[in-house]
Design a protein around this nucleic acid. Sequence first.
DNA 1: CGAGTACTTGACCCAGATCAAGCCATGTGG
DNA 2: CCACATGGCTTGATCTGGGTCAAGTACTCG
Lengths: 252, 252
Amino acid sequence: MSGRQRKVVCITELRQACRTCSLQELCLPMGLAAEDIQRLESIVGHKGPLERGRHLFREGDPFQSIYAVRDGALKTYSIDADGREHVLGFHLPGELLGLDAIYPRVNRCSAVALSNASVCVLPYDRLSDLAHEVSGLQSQIFRLLSKDLSISANLATDHTAEERLAGFLISIAARSGAGTELKLVMPRRDIASYLRLATETVSRLLARFQQEGYVEVHRKNLQLLNVEGLRRLGGSFELTGLASAIRRPLRG
Amino acid sequence: MSGRQRKVVCITELRQACRTCSLQELCLPMGLAAEDIQRLESIVGHKGPLERGRHLFREGDPFQSIYAVRDGALKTYSIDADGREHVLGFHLPGELLGLDAIYPRVNRCSAVALSNASVCVLPYDRLSDLAHEVSGLQSQIFRLLSKDLSISANLATDHTAEERLAGFLISIAARSGAGTELKLVMPRRDIASYLRLATETVSRLLARFQQEGYVEVHRKNLQLLNVEGLRRLGGSFELTGLASAIRRPLRG
DNA sequence: CGAGTACTTGACCCAGATCAAGCCATGTGG
DNA sequence: CCACATGGCTTGATCTGGGTCAAGTACTCG
């Protein structure tokens, strides 16, 4: 609503956001030539600041744009027939939202800010047109869609609560790129919903992980003390979509 | 290996396969002009017959092509660190396989024929090039990736065994497009793995569904007696990726 | 027709859900 | 600056859906 016109720097800042995280190759403008980035800049809009609790879009909205997080964090969720909320994903700086709406042309989930956030707005039709002309962009969109597919498929497999939570912590650490010290912006309830656990289970497991020396938790502040150990606990439960990326040391 | 050259009719036959199912809009060549279909034909290969139990590709293979099922059925699966198999999906005529390998450029799963099958081979680089030129093709690939994303995200949400199985039956019926009478080509063990249930649970539930008049099962043959009821049991658990498609009567 | 494999059915068990207090940080008004 | 409300978080006690183990049964194919 408010600052929808500061276009020139949006993609550039987005790249900046990607650089701070260890998974740079997941960034939309990754690998594009300077002039192509310029063209991408020319079609994107900017939205923000979006304060905590505000919605970026809602389930049922007609699909027009996908979004890239520049700053802050958002979650996507849907409400099922019984009125229960299911958290579908957390979106940190550099990551995309709204890809699952391309097919049905209607948003299948809602997106809300977990902290004050700002996003790039990528009008789908224009992005799609541009992807025709800029080869690297098309490939990158294919790759990003494909990546989300891997994550989601893995999330769908059968794992214990311990594996889920350990994998989740590793994933958040890798994606936030802040080394071993990180802030859990999302409440326990949302983590639980995302991992399909009860809030109490998340709480108990965090307590156990702490007791066993894997982490130090205090409220939203979390310090990883034994990343290798957590990774072992996580087993085959991976949420980054790229085994190799997570295998290299954090703070890459 | 064997008949890899009969190109001319492959895509055309693929469309045929799509027509027999009620979800035509999911077909790759959907909506393309005749001349574009011709161009698509020119890059695709053909592979088959692939007999039951034979692999189309294996986890770890370098990624080169995606595939479209022309005839028969396949499943994709991966083996986790503990050697346990996880079924990731079933692929019926008209559907694509291998999309999740685009990002990592390595196949993250294996694909095996559940019955004698034949597939179209779509070399990714060439497909990607062609998608630049043919606007409808790029969009369709975006849409298909997006659809798989929705399915996978939904599969990842939290549902009871009853909901899962009911949703699965509805989905298979809609996709195989054979009305209410259908054949479960995959063994119970695979259905169970896909839905993250024990084989015994699938067996018990099918018995219960029969007892309660929803279906008539005999081994691999299944007859849906009360589709509306099953849909109600399935609740919000949907595996077609498009609510509206499944809501319209089968045998569309 | 015998061996192997897929499926079914029953008995028991457990990871994690649910229910129920209590706790602790932050905010708000007096 | 304190009382006290509010909502997120933790911890304990109990319950249960569906997993596991075990023992058949019935196709299928050589």
